[in-house]
């Protein structure tokens, strides 16, 4: 069982979910009536969030693969480099961690679900699941293997637990066989999971 999901066959759960939706409606209407949040603000915020997708992160990664000076700036100050690329990281600092032949990075939040949502959008359910949060820090290699990622001998695993005010983005390794590719073409190989660190970038 993973959290974030329900047992739709259980009538009590249906009742609870139903109640959550009524509560959401009631709170929202009260906030509108009191002028705390307008319907328009809410709609625009949802649109803003919907527009944040892993494609933003992929563009940043692909640029770092093709522009060494940008990559250096990205590793030095992730938030500033993202701003330069037209992507806001909101109130958060962004720590960009680079995968190399010697080290592989993996991001988790063991205490809740901190995620670079400004850059990648909302997290997948599994990222917020009890199993991922519990195991990524203790048996990262087993978790990686479940995602089909088996590291070569001698590759160190660096796990990053997002416990406070930093957010993390993995800079995956550029796949072989992509020499001379443009940044937009490379970006198509950069998956969300590769920027969380559970998988490498796609092969061409």
């Amino acid at each position: 069982m993973h959290d974030g999901h329900d047992h739709p066959t259980l009538p009590e759960r249906d009742e609870e979910l139903n109640r959550a939706q009524i509560t959401e409606m009631a709170l929202r209407q009260l906030l509108h009536e009191k002028g705390v949040i307008t319907a328009d603000e809410l709609r625009r915020q949802i649109e803003t969030m919907d527009a944040r997708t892993p494609a933003q992160g992929a563009a940043v990664v692909a640029r770092a693969w093709t522009d060494p000076a940008f990559k250096a700036r990205l590793l030095a100050d992730g938030a500033a480099a993202c701003r330069e690329a037209g992507i806001s990281t909101g109130p958060f600092n962004l720590v960009v961690v680079e995968n190399t032949p010697e080290q592989h990075n993996l991001v988790v939040c063991t205490l809740c679900s901190c995620y670079p949502r400004y850059v990648l959008g909302l997290p997948p359910d599994w990222y917020k699941s009890k199993a991922y949060r519990a195991r990524a820090v203790r048996e990262p290699r087993a978790v990686l293997a479940e995602f089909g990622t088996v590291l070569a001998d001698g590759v160190a695993v660096r796990v990053h637990d997002s416990t406070a005010d930093m957010r993390y983005l993995v800079l995956p390794m550029r796949p072989n066989g992509t020499e001379g590719w443009s940044a937009p073409r490379l970006a198509e190989l950069v998956t969300r999971d590769s920027m969380i660190g559970v998988a490498p970038a796609r092969d061409p």
């Binding site: 993973h2 205490l111 599994w126 009890k130 519990a134």
Partner: peptide
């Protein structure tokens, strides 16, 4: 939760509902 025993990571995802 860090370090507690747990089963395999279920890789299900869902599209978020409007609410």
């Amino acid at each position: 939760l860090g370090g507690l025993p747990a089963g395999p990571v279920e890789r299900a995802e869902h599209d978020y509902a409007l609410w």
